[in-house]
Design a protein around this nucleic acid. Structure first.
Length: 480
DNA sequence: CGTGATGCGCTTAAGCGCATCACGGTGCGTTAAT
């Protein structure tokens, strides 16, 4: 077959992984495609290969600058020179130069915000695209409505006779799939839906009556069992306090959150990936685009704000296919903070009124921002919805968002309090059915955690002998 | 909405009881003030 020979020649693989060929064939037939593929199943091949077959520019819309940078570096490493990330890392001159010569690139990575700029759109409309890719497409639904509204504008950016769109994601509920289809203006897309279940991730949970007991258990647990692992917590300050306590107890740990310096974040991430750092204590900022194979534990010190986040976060464990555990910790009233944080930054009814007032007087509504009446995020979100709907409709939309966010926390609470199989609950939440349960399924199915976890000393010994072997190998290769 | 830190007033002047207050996630791009 022709596709196989391109796969062999260009990428050096002898066969496709499940889903890849179906997805690529549909793209080559000119169809829109939504592909739900687990991480590590070769999503990027699904657009790289068509890029070479169709021989025109591929546009990849990506949520994070660091993610774009990684992918560009990766492709350059494999010999592709005609690849660029069009984002704010470029200065004004560089940006203009790139935009003016846009057609010379085979792969262009871009953020939704940059894509929304008129200058960029005008240029893009004049060049021929073979394919439009939306990477991490669940962001449309996860971030579009109340955080990064430009995610909802992607569909508008391209005319009616546009190139096919490929939406890629690892976790999407039926509602998220609907949102993707709707906001990307897709026409009867082909859907490739892989199971979201990850049988080698074993699920557990524990409840405590107060925070101290919970933290005490956490510190005991991390002292006695081996990483590498990620501890997810609710606030930036908690990432620091927990990692400091771990450090004081001689455990290799560092904190990570969105308010930290970009270089610090990259440094910590790098150390974790290389294996010189055992534990990361993080907010939900940590994880997207982290390709670490051997994460053994995911511990939620605080309740995740919804099931989708929980699924994505535990999904960072066990990419190598070996056993990993996810432990969800809960102490009374934890859900209150999750609810508060979720709705805290949504625009209020009074903001809608003020915005309308400015508009009616023919004034620039951005004055709200300058006068500190509203946060930057809330203003951008408000601005989007005021373009789309009437003020009363906008008020209803925000009211419904609040209710929805609280309900989503309650759904996680059900996972915490219920006796039914955690894996089944999760898989059902994503609109799928669970065919096989692993032997060590979840705590409600009689999981033996101790058997799955490696004691800390054991791990240290093996890692010591590993580094010793590596040293010898290094010595030998240097001498020869 | 709940938590934890801080502060105040009271009083077998060192520590208790209670009130008050600050704080709380996710990222893009651009720009103003040093």
């Amino acid at each position: 077959m022709q596709l196989e020979s391109i796969l062999q020649q260009r990428f050096g693989y002898s066969s496709f992984r499940s889903g890849q060929k179906e997805v690529i064939e549909q793209i080559l037939n000119g169809k829109d495609v939504i592909a739900l593929l687990p991480t590590g199943m070769g999503k990027s091949l699904c657009y790289q290969l068509p890029g070479y077959v169709l021989n025109k520019t591929v546009l990849v819309i990506s949520p994070l600058l660091s993610l774009m940078q990684d992918q560009v570096d990766q492709m350059k490493l494999f010999g592709e020179k005609r690849v660029i990330a069009l984002n704010s890392f470029l200065n004004k001159e560089e940006k203009n130069r790139v935009i003016n010569g846009l057609e010379q690139y085979r792969f262009i990575f871009i953020s939704p915000e940059m894509l929304a700029q008129r200058q960029v759109q005008q240029k893009l409309n004049r060049i021929e695209l073979s394919l439009i890719v939306v990477d991490e497409a669940h962001c449309i639904s996860q971030w579009g409505f109340d955080f990064r509204p430009d995610y909802l504008r992607i569909g508008e950016m391209f005319g009616t006779s546009r190139s096919p769109i490929l939406a890629l994601t690892a976790t999407a509920t039926n509602k998220v799939l609907e949102d993707i289809e709707l906001y990307l203006n897709m026409k009867e897309p082909f859907k490739y839906i892989h199971s979201v279940d990850r049988p080698n991730i074993h699920l557990s949970k524990m409840s405590f009556s107060n925070r101290e007991e919970k933290l005490e258990w956490l510190f005991q647990h991390v002292s006695n069992t081996a990483g590498p692992g990620i501890i997810y917590t609710q606030s930036r300050s908690k990432t620091h306090s927990i990692s400091e306590t771990l450090l004081q107890n001689g455990i290799s740990a560092a904190s990570y959150h969105g308010g930290m310096d970009l270089l610090d974040r990259q440094f910590i991430q790098q150390q974790f990936i290389e294996g010189t750092l055992d534990w990361i204590v993080a907010t939900n900022a940590f994880g997207m685009g982290i390709h670490k194979q051997d994460v053994r534990q995911i511990i939620h010190e605080s309740i995740p704000s919804n099931m989708a986040n929980y699924m994505q976060e535990i999904g960072r464990a066990g990419r190598d296919g070996n056993d990993a555990v996810a432990i969800l910790l809960y102490s009374e009233h934890d859900e209150e903070l999750a609810k508060f944080v979720g709705i805290d930054d949504l625009p209020l009814e009074q903001h809608v009124d003020i915005f309308e007032e400015y508009q009616r007087n023919g004034q620039d509504a951005t004055q709200m921002l300058k006068q500190g009446e509203i946060s930057e995020t809330a203003f951008r979100v408000l601005n989007y919805w005021m373009e789309q709907k009437t003020p009363n409709e906008v008020k209803t939309i925000f009211q419904n968002m609040k209710i929805e966010k609280m309900q989503k926390v309650e759904e996680v609470m059900k996972l915490i309090t219920s006796d039914t199989c955690m894996r089944e609950t999760l898989v059902h939440y994503f609109g799928q059915t669970l065919n096989d349960k692993p032997e060590q399924c979840c705590i409600n199915c009689g999981l033996d955690l101790a058997q799955l976890l490696i004691a800390k000393e054991e791990k240290n010994l093996s890692s010591f002998s590993m580094t010793w072997q590596e040293r010898i190998t290094n010595l030998l290769t240097k001498k020869s």
